[in-house]
Amino acid sequence: MTSEKALGIESGGVVAAHAHEEPHASNRTYVVIALVLGVLTALEVMVFYVEALAPVLVPILILLSGTKFALVVAFYMHLKFDGNVLRGLFLGPLFIAVAIIVALIALYGYLL
């Protein structure tokens, strides 16, 4: 059954414990991330009050809050350091969830 390896499906063998014990980020990194999160939040609120930016408010906010979302998930939830299984368990459902939000607001005429 050589094709199984070619299909790229993980082996059924027991993965040694060290595969899981990859180094997580250091405390110093966590503090830096917190500072970045704080700055991004401040930026979001500033953007909200700048009237000149009103036409592009939504894209800017999506970008800023998306970055915050990604930072927390990647570093605080360790997804950057964990294996593909957990990444798939989160990103798959997240994709369907976002698709359903987009589909519903499109069906209600907010996009087109």
Partner: peptide
């Protein structure tokens, strides 16, 4: 575990 991830975490 097969994946090396603890059951609780998965």
């Amino acid at each position: 575990t097969n994946t090396g991830v603890p059951n609780e975490k998965m």
